[in-house]
Amino acid sequence: MIEVKNLVKDYYGNVAVDGLSFTVEEGEIVGFLGPNGAGKSTTMNIITGYLSATEGQVIVNGYDVFEDPEKAKKSIGYLPEQPPLYPDMKVREYLMFVADLKKVKKRERASMIKSIMELTKITDVSEKLIKFLSKGYKQRVGLAAAIVGYPEILILDEPTVGLDPKQIIEIRELIKSLSKKHTILLSSHIMQEIDAVCDKIIIINKGKLIAYDTPANIARVMENSRELHITVCGSEMTVRRALDYVDGIKKLDVRYSDATGMSDITIKMNEGCDVRKNVSEKLMDAKCPIIEMKLHEVSIEEIFLKLTNSNNKEDK
């Protein structure tokens, strides 16, 4: 469990984290989302004890990071933005060093590292020098180092940055499988990633907490969250007449294009209503064949942009 209370980090007048408070419960995967320079890495560096805070308190697994750092650090596995690798070490040698550093018992080390290498799929490069590895493998070695010692909490700073799509999916799967045993806080500025993996999302901008909820709840919070896009053959008048008395439509928007003889319809629905069946029946009755119909759920991406933008405006 991670408890962050009223965290402030002030770099000589440049406030990177501004009164941030949140709690990550045991067994959760929480995504830490924010534009570049929002204070994600700084917050993570403070939680892991790499940086100090100007104000506030961080409690990891019941230990205060500032007052009891060694015990708190023992329960954290950290993958920083740039994996902290020694280029002149071999992969297995590096992981053995990390295990020694994290005070893993000597007789458990070899077997633990073997299973971690299998988990992160780096067994086949275990005797290679780290400097000869590709970016994807380096990232995985960094992740393996974070898992060494099986700490209760994993903090991963942009774990998939710089990877190819296949590797991204692999790492995501890996993170999901890790979440059974670990509490995970991971940061990203890629929304789909957080959406795909996390139970909860923390959105921060300019060091301030903007939202902290489940992805679905954040989407629900947004007004007019669901839209229906339909393309039909038929003039604006016929379409409007057909759809005028359908229940559950909050807002109807029709644009007719002369060139194609088709109308683009955008429907905003009332909450909890699905009007697709009704709408298509009415349109069929009015002899307007439907070319295309799709339900558009507002993505986390749009919410994120909207939230961070409105936040910017308030500042001004």
């Binding site: 790499y50 060694e70 954290i76 920083p80 740039q82 550093l101």
Partner: peptide
């Protein structure tokens, strides 16, 4: 330079 100080300073070693 290698930022490996992040590994050392976040490990349970003073």
């Amino acid at each position: 330079r290698q930022k490996t100080d992040q590994l050392l300073l976040t490990s349970p070693v003073s």
